[in-house]
Design a protein around this nucleic acid. Sequence first.
DNA 1: ATAGGGTTAG
Length: 490
Amino acid sequence: MGGNSLLNLLLCDKGHLTKPSNPATAKAVTTTILNHLDSGRLRKAVSILFYAPFPFHFSLYARLFQLCSSTGSRAIVEARKVESHLFTFSPTPPVFLVNRAIEAFAKCGSLGDARELFEEMPQRDGGSWNALITACSQSGSPEEAFRLFVKMSRSGFLPNEITFASVLGSCAAVLALSLSRQVHGLIVKYGFGGNVVIGSSLVDIYGKCLIMDDARKIFDEIKNPNDISWNIIVRRYLEMGEGEEAIVMFFQMFKAAVRPLKFTFSNALVACSSISALDEGIQIHGVAIKMGFDDDEIVSSSLIDMYAKCGDLESASAIFDQPNSKDVISWTSIVSGYAMSGQTWKARELFDEMPERNVISWNAMLAGYTRYSQWEEAVDFLFLMRNTTNNIDQVTLGLILKVCAGLLDVELGKQVHGFIYRHGFSSSMFVGNGLLHMYSKCGKMRSAKTVWFHQISHWQDRVSSNALLSSYAHRGRSELAMTIFCEMQW
DNA sequence: ATAGGGTTAG
């Protein structure tokens, strides 16, 4: 605020500047600003405010701060201008308005500005603490959010629902179970357990910590779960691999007369494909049509994906052929559907027609070739890929390793291993499993073991351990398999 | 004269 105070000092001498010479002027300028805001011209509105040498009503500043942070605009320059004007002509603005400014800075991605403003506030209220805690938890500084939460209590401010909602946001970011349980305890103690937002966040956290029983208990205790609560529970069941329960919950949502979100549709549809539940998928399709969700991009591409994964490529194509449903995602779904059902030729035809491709599209095609052991096509495709795109990710590398394994080409595999090492892909589980599989398949058990011990053991991952164990067992080395199994247990 | 939660293709 140093600069602002200096400006204040200078302006205080010029009394005529701090008040409009004509009260009608302020009113007229306010009207102009409001007109610009109504037409969505935030920059213009702020610019007029910035050059007006007199204060405005506090509610105008509040509205401007909110607009600066509203989704899409993220106007940090404008937020700074509004703040500067506010402090210039109202050296001690009300606390709530400074809170709005903190929120605006945080939402524009400038945690530094938010923090500075908070620290320089002569007095704060609970809202100021909440604003900064929220700022930290949304800008990827969960630890600082926890620290502030403790400091807030020590400064004599009681946490409210908003505080806990933000703190839970940080808990979800770090997924620290014991910390979350402590916060949960406090929430119950303060009597906020029935709050929908807080309950939903707790469901989200316990679900992400893989404790579905607790998540479900908390969900059942929410008095009126809303669309987001239902979305969370469906999603968490899906991610736990309990597709059936996810679908059950999706249909229960209608009994509770809650209108689903489009994402809930897609989560439920992914659940259907995860357990090949075509009938339920068709039912959900019907519901989507009834509720007018079928022309939504996300829902229709999820439908295409569901039909494709359940093997009903005709229905998938039918939706795909409708206008407005062809985007990269649905293109990729359809290509993947044909590729993974063995019709790689048809998939390739569609792939070649794609107006736009990304890594996932390329991987989908490659995955088809590898699944059906079409190594020659896969190699040709890799050459094409190399000449067309620089976009490669851990999934591509995992697939390339599968190709090496399929061709029993350990030399190529070693080159890929070198590439993986140099480009920092080693930490990916997908790549690690690929390496392990490739070396095992090529009979290089020493290399496989090295990969396992150096990269994979600390993941405690079932897939990789099984890959190694089964290949040892296959080669009649069951005593070695047992040794490794014991080390793994340890 | 307010603030908080969830994200479709491999």
